[in-house]
């Protein structure tokens, strides 16, 4: 298993964000996560990426225990993430934003990194804005920058946090194509998304979280049809 999470727990006061959670992602597997607001989805990403320390349990990545590892160490070992609310380096240019990931995440020289950063920008449709300040981007472009920047670190596992929200149909289709592309290069992914049809177009397996617990897991279309999930997601269309 690429990512192997066992008995993970995290509470904020009386609020339980992760409750004895087990979760695995195989290499080259795409796993979707859905769940109502406050189910602990983003907290799970923060625990995997190292922004938060868990209350209990273990996280193993590529066979190594990273439960207590620093965020930068996890990045070096191959975990890349996007943020639900984009966090660009606003006073750096779009290209420099990627360069940070390539130079510090992969220990490349700037010269070596230029090529892969340029290719990622091209693929994500940001090439025109390469030398603009990231602070000048629109929300959609900022979301693309989140992905581009994570890809610049050459991750083995990509954590995508609600990147399809607020997109038009056309933009969403384009995004799905881009994500499929990334998958085809051998990157595993864990994708939190409320836009379920986008998830279903890509993922191999779907996990449903509620109150920090896994309430359903399996083949995406079966999971969506299960009564438990129906109860949470009323009126869901798959």
């Amino acid at each position: 298993m690429l990512l192997d999470i066992a008995a993970l727990s995290k509470s904020f006061g009386s609020i339980v964000a992760a409750d004895n959670l087990d979760l695995v992602v195989a290499a080259n597997e795409a796993v979707g996560i859905i769940g109502p607001n406050g189910a602990g989805k983003t907290t799970l990403f923060n625990l995997i990426a190292g922004t938060l320390a868990p209350g209990g349990g273990t996280i193993r990545f590529g066979g190594c225990d990273i439960t207590r590892a620093a965020p930068q160490t996890r990045c070096h070992s191959g975990i890349g993430r996007t943020h639900q609310i984009p966090q660009p380096f606003e006073k750096l240019t779009v290209f420099e934003n990627l360069l940070v990931g390539a130079v510090h995440g992969r220990s490349m020289s700037e010269r070596e990194a230029a090529r892969s950063c340029g290719e990622i920008l091209e693929r994500l449709g940001l090439l025109r804005h390469a030398n603009s300040l990231a602070g000048s981007l629109t929300l959609l472009q900022r979301k693309r920058l989140e992905m581009a920047r994570a890809l610049a670190t050459a991750p083995k596992l990509l954590l995508l946090d609600e990147i399809a929200g607020g997109l038009t149909e056309g933009e969403c289709a384009e995004l799905i194509a881009t994500i499929r592309d990334i998958r085809n290069t051998g990157v595993a992914m864990l994708w939190i998304e409320h836009v379920v049809h986008a998830l279903l177009a890509v993922v191999d397996r779907l996990i449903v979280l509620n109150f920090g617990r896994k309430i359903a897991e399996g083949a995406p279309r079966e999971v969506i049809r299960s009564p438990e999930v129906r109860q949470i997601y009323i009126g869901i269309e798959a």
């Binding site: 190292g50 990045c75 966090q87 380096f89 940070v100």
Partner: peptide
């Protein structure tokens, strides 16, 4: 230098910089 790049990232978004491999 590469450290200068990291400084700009830390100044703008410290947590995101760490996630991109910068030792803050």
């Amino acid at each position: 230098s590469r450290r200068g790049l990291a400084l700009g990232a830390i100044r703008d978004q410290e947590a995101a910089a760490a996630g991109l491999g910068v030792d803050i």
